[in-house]
Computed example of a mutant assay.
Amino acid sequence: MADLRIGLVGLGMMGRHHARVIRETDGVVLAGVADALGDPHRVAGDLAISASVDDLIAVGIDAAVVAVPTAYHEAVALTLAAAGVHALIEKPISGDVASGTRIVEAFESRGLVGAVGHIERFNPALQSLRARIASGDLGEVYQIATRRQGPFPSRIADVGVVKDLATHDIDLTSWLAQSRFASVSAHTTVRSGREFEDMVSFTALLENNVITNHLVNWLSPMKERVTVVTGERGAFVADTISGDLTFFENGTVNTEWESVAAFRGVSEGTMVRFALTKREPLRVEHEEFRNAILGLDSGVVTLREGLENVRVAEAVLKSAQNATTETIAGA
C-alpha cells in the first residue's frame, strides 16, 4: 500500500517538529508544506513552499497537519474539509465554541478523520497512569490536581493561558477520569501587560464527582508539568516533562506513636517509580493519526473532544470574569 501523503500547514515552532516526525513515521510521507511567511526553521528541504492551503492541496495530499496560530484554524480546516483532506489540528481546535462547532460539522459531514493535537494524552507517564486507574490500582479516585507553569512563549499572541495551556489540563483530566467536567470556578489575572490572561487557578467538579484543581501560568521562571491523582489506595504523580510516573501507596503499618498517627491521617507507605518505555509523544500522536486514517484502532483526540475542551475553557474564563461557579453546557 502506498504511503499516505501528508501536507503541513505552518512552519513555525510546532511546525518544525511536525515536519521531522512526519519524515520519521512509517507509512506516511511529507508531500508538501505551506506557510505564507516562509520557512524560518528550514524544514522544507527539497519541497516547494506553498503560499496557501489551496496550493498545498493542489500538490496532492491525503491528510494535513495544521500548525498555524489558533485564529487561523477554522479557515484552514474548512478549506481542507471541502477538499476531502483529513486533518490533525494543533490544540486548541479553535478560538471559540462556535468556530470549533463549524470545524466538527465540516469533517463529520464528509466522513473525514479529524483530530486535535492534545499531545499530553500520548505522554508515557499519563498513558501508564490512565491504564493503572482503569485497572483499579488506585481504587476510587478522589481528586486530580495539575500544575502547568513556566515562562511566556513569545510565539503565542492570539489566545491567553486558558485556551493555550489549560486546555491540556482540561483534556488530560477528563481523559484520566473518563468523565466530563460538570462545573468550574476560576480566577485569572494579567500581570505582564499583554492582552490576554497569563495566570489561572481553577477548581472543578467532574460528572463522576471527582474534584479537580489546576494552576496554570506563563509567569514562572521554572517549568513544571505535574499531574497528581489521589484515591483510596494512595496517589500517583506524573511528571510529563521527564515522562516519570511515581506511586505513593497508603501505608498498612500502624504507628505506635499516637500523636503522629492522629496528625498524619493516612499513613505513609511504599513509594514506587515505574520503569516505563518512553517514546516521543508527538511520534505516537502521528502514528495514531495515521492509524485512524487507515481505519485501524486509534487513540486520537477527536474533534468533538477538542471542542469539549474549548467549551470548558470558555466556562473557566466566564467564571473568572463574573466571579461565579459555571455549569458546563450539556453537563
Rank of each mutant, 00 (worst) to 15 (best):
L4N: 13
G7H: 04
L8C: 10
V9S: 03
V9W: 02
G10Y: 03
M14D: 05
M14C: 10
R16A: 08
R23E: 10
D26K: 14
V28P: 12
A34Y: 07
D35E: 02
A36G: 11
L37D: 09
L37F: 14
A48L: 03
S52D: 06
V53H: 02
D55E: 15
L56T: 04
L56I: 07
L56P: 09
A58F: 01
I61F: 09
V65Q: 09
V68Y: 03
T70S: 12
H73I: 02
A75C: 03
A77H: 04
T79V: 01
L80G: 06
L80N: 08
A82D: 15
G84Y: 11
G84T: 07
V85L: 06
A87T: 12
L88K: 11
P92E: 06
P92N: 04
P92C: 01
S94R: 00
G95S: 03
T101Y: 03
E105V: 11
E105S: 13
A106Q: 14
S109Y: 06
V113K: 07
V116G: 05
V116M: 03
G117R: 10
F122W: 14
N123M: 10
Q127G: 04
A131N: 08
R132S: 05
G136H: 02
L138S: 07
L138K: 03
G150W: 09
S154L: 06
R155S: 12
I156R: 00
D158S: 00
G160W: 05
V161R: 06
D164L: 04
D164G: 00
A166C: 07
T167W: 04
H168D: 15
H168W: 07
I170W: 04
I170A: 07
I170N: 04
D171R: 01
D171F: 13
W175D: 01
W175E: 01
S179D: 11
F181M: 09
S183H: 00
H187T: 14
T189M: 00
R194I: 00
R194H: 10
E195A: 11
F196H: 13
E197N: 06
D198H: 02
M199E: 14
M199K: 03
S201V: 15
S201A: 10
L205T: 15
L205S: 08
L205I: 11
L206A: 05
L206K: 04
N208A: 03
V210A: 08
T212P: 07
L215D: 04
M222F: 07
E224M: 01
V226E: 02
V226R: 11
V228G: 00
V229D: 11
G231E: 01
R233F: 11
V237D: 02
D239I: 09
T240F: 12
I241W: 09
S242D: 12
L245D: 11
N250D: 05
N250V: 01
T255N: 03
E256R: 07
A261K: 12
A261S: 14
E268V: 05
V272G: 00
F274D: 13
T277G: 08
R279G: 11
R283V: 13
E285K: 13
N291K: 15
A292M: 15
L294Q: 15
G295V: 15
S298M: 06
T302P: 13
L303A: 14
R304T: 15
R304S: 15
V310P: 05
A313N: 10
L317M: 12
L317I: 13
K318E: 14
K318G: 01
S319A: 03
N322R: 12
T325I: 02
T327Y: 02
I328P: 02
A329F: 05
A331Q: 11
